[in-house]
Design a protein around this nucleic acid. Structure first.
Length: 281
DNA sequence: TGCCAGGATGATG
DNA sequence: CATCATCATGGC
């Protein structure tokens, strides 16, 4: 990977596979959106990101080395060699197809708190509506960074809000879950940051105690928010994929089942006919 | 227009 | 431990 400062911002080239649409619109995050010029816009840690695709890489518009090093390097998981990973995955035939279909997927390292709330919202919900709810949540309770651009709201802000506020945003029955989850984090009875380094099983057990968090959401929080690349969230589509793989993830994904899962999930959603007939039980 | 969504809960067998 | 109705909403 090569990083250089340009007139526009920070340009990154020689990346081991990064497609903005494949990575930012594959069901792992809900706030990024391309504008009319094809520039992807999103907010991470209160920083407004604007990313433009180049012939040979991408440019973080308006960013300096500080912002890149403190925010974007980790967020895009640039410390990981995805070419090596995909080479390992390709030992399995279906995984190889999935990697070839969308070789530009990287698993983002999202903020624990934001991943926690957004994946609570995701339960029994569709991606288009999840995006809408999250957008309204940010607009209603997030800090306005610039005109019409909002940070993800803090736990403190959500904890002081009555449940009805979330119901009004169209959260449905999840309003209750959001409210109690925010209170737990704000009051400190749940420390998400500590779960990043806690033993995996212990972290998972802790998440499962939260009202509204089951196995699926817990694994999503572990993978997308807590940097646990070995966790493999399995929704109904992934269950079909895993069934098609013989009941378990192939051995070539050891320690990176969550990353392999992201390739497979995206693959299955784009070729549902390959999996829809597989019954999972 | 009815079906379904990156599920979880609480009751019941 | 396994099953099952129920939950609220809107994109498709």
């Amino acid at each position: 990977m090569k990083i250089e400062k340009t007139a526009d911002g920070i340009k990154v080239t020689e990346i081991s596979g990064l497609s903005l649409p494949e990575t930012l619109d594959c069901g792992q995050c809900f706030r990024w959106k391309p504008d009319e010029n094809g520039i992807w816009r999103g907010v991470v840690k209160g920083i407004y990101g604007k990313i433009r695709k180049e012939e040979d890489g991408i440019t973080f518009l308006g960013a300096d080395e500080n912002i890149f090093n403190e925010i974007w390097f980790d967020y895009f998981d640039f410390g990981r060699d995805y070419d090596a990973l995909k080479a390992d995955f390709s030992a399995n035939e279906m995984l190889r197809s999935a990697c070839e279909f969308a070789p530009g997927i990287r698993v983002l390292r999202q903020e624990p708190w934001e991943a926690f709330i957004t994946f609570i919202i995701s339960q029994n919900n569709n991606i288009a509506r999840i995006k809408g709810i999250v957008e309204r949540l940010c607009a209603a309770f997030g800090k306005e960074i610039e005109e019409g651009v909002f940070a993800f709201p803090t736990a403190e802000r959500l904890a002081e809000e009555p449940v009805e506020s979330f119901a009004k945003l169209g959260c449905g029955y999840r309003a209750d879950y959001i409210s109690s989850a925010a209170k737990e984090v704000f009051e400190g009875t749940l420390d998400l940051d500590s779960l990043m380094t806690a033993p995996l099983d212990e972290a998972r057990e802790r998440l499962l105690k939260v009202h509204g968090v089951g196995p699926k959401v817990a694994d999503c929080v572990l993978l997308y928010g807590l940097g646990r690349a070995e966790r493999c969230p399995a929704d109904v589509w992934m269950k079909r994929v895993i069934a098609a793989l013989g009941g378990e993830m192939p051995s070539c994904v050891t320690d990176y089942a969550g990353i392999a899962q992201q390739f497979l999930f995206h693959y299955a959603r784009n070729f549902p006919e390959k999996f829809v007939d597989i019954k999972v039980k």
